[in-house]
Amino acid sequence: MSAVSAAAQVRLMGFDVDGVMTDGSLYFTPNGEELKVFSSLDGHGLKMLQTAGIEVAIISGRSSRALELRAANLGIRELHMGVEDKRACMQSLLEARRLPANAAGYMGDDVVDLPILRACGFSAAPSDAHEFVQRHVCHVTRNSGGRGAVREVCDFLLASQGRLDAMLSAYLA
């Protein structure tokens, strides 16, 4: 199945955080507080997915107050942090919505993401993802993690579902 065909089926799109929504760098204050840098371009893409009726989930192996604030700011209710088995988390989300695996997508960057990436109908990785991961996903972005890769995937999903042009045209009115 082509990446476009797989993306056309997505109703629930999940995202990893470090290396996908961020550049993967970990910043800590002297007090031990973790800081993260998020792209506003990516954020608008996530909002556009939600507007189009595609539910967004964040499934991360790490926990962070910065991520809690970012998810709340974007209206993302499905925030799952400190998850050891991301595939099982996605399966639970699909079961709760009575959706098949081909209705799910996930974007990850490292080998620990491969189980969930391979379990979803659509999978994506940023251009700076681990090389092995890039070989096992449907779509690799031109942009790197934290630098527009998430937005690129959001636009790809919306275009694959025939919704992107109409959404962008609204900004020209």
Rank of each mutant, 00 (worst) to 15 (best):
66 A>D: 13
123 S>H: 07
153 V>R: 00
62 R>Q: 13
103 A>Y: 09
117 L>K: 04
139 H>W: 15
56 V>M: 10
93 L>C: 08
137 V>K: 01
64 S>N: 09
135 R>N: 08
125 A>V: 05
153 V>K: 01
27 Y>T: 12
97 R>H: 08
72 A>C: 01
126 P>W: 07
70 R>D: 09
97 R>M: 11
48 M>Y: 12
114 L>G: 02
90 M>R: 05
41 L>H: 12
111 V>S: 07
102 N>S: 12
142 R>F: 10
74 L>N: 02
70 R>T: 00
6 A>S: 13
2 S>Y: 08
2 S>V: 01
145 G>F: 05
87 R>H: 08
107 M>S: 02
132 F>T: 15
77 R>N: 14
18 D>H: 06
60 S>I: 00
35 L>T: 09
8 A>E: 12
132 F>Y: 12
140 V>M: 02
83 V>I: 15
157 L>W: 07
144 S>R: 14
92 S>E: 14
107 M>T: 07
159 A>C: 05
129 A>I: 04
98 R>L: 10
138 C>H: 10
79 L>A: 03
2 S>T: 13
163 R>K: 12
126 P>E: 04
143 N>Y: 12
173 A>W: 15
21 M>L: 11
30 P>H: 14
168 L>M: 13
31 N>H: 11
9 Q>Y: 08
12 L>K: 00
155 D>R: 00
161 Q>M: 05
127 S>Y: 11
31 N>I: 00
35 L>H: 13
111 V>I: 15
170 A>T: 14
112 V>I: 12
113 D>G: 10
153 V>F: 05
130 H>G: 02
9 Q>R: 15
118 R>H: 10
58 I>C: 07
146 G>E: 08
164 L>Q: 08
57 A>M: 06
116 I>C: 01
78 E>G: 03
27 Y>M: 09
77 R>C: 14
76 I>D: 08
9 Q>S: 11
86 K>G: 07
45 G>M: 06
93 L>V: 07
84 E>Y: 14
102 N>F: 14
11 R>F: 11
49 L>P: 14
150 V>M: 02
149 A>I: 01
23 D>A: 05
135 R>V: 00
91 Q>C: 06
36 K>N: 05
114 L>I: 06
27 Y>D: 06
74 L>K: 03
115 P>K: 02
7 A>I: 00
44 H>M: 14
6 A>V: 01
103 A>E: 09
150 V>S: 02
68 E>C: 05
172 L>K: 13
48 M>K: 10
56 V>Q: 09
29 T>L: 15
92 S>N: 14
72 A>M: 07
97 R>W: 08
32 G>M: 09
163 R>S: 12
161 Q>I: 01
113 D>Q: 03
70 R>C: 04
37 V>A: 15
55 E>K: 09
35 L>R: 11
31 N>L: 12
93 L>Y: 13
138 C>W: 12
89 C>S: 11
38 F>R: 00
69 L>I: 13
12 L>Y: 09
19 G>K: 03
84 E>N: 15
25 S>A: 11
6 A>R: 08
58 I>K: 09
127 S>W: 11
147 R>K: 08
106 Y>W: 08
52 A>N: 05
149 A>P: 01
118 R>G: 01
101 A>I: 01
80 H>Q: 11
98 R>W: 14
67 L>W: 03
120 C>G: 02
144 S>H: 10
78 E>C: 10
112 V>F: 09
134 Q>S: 09
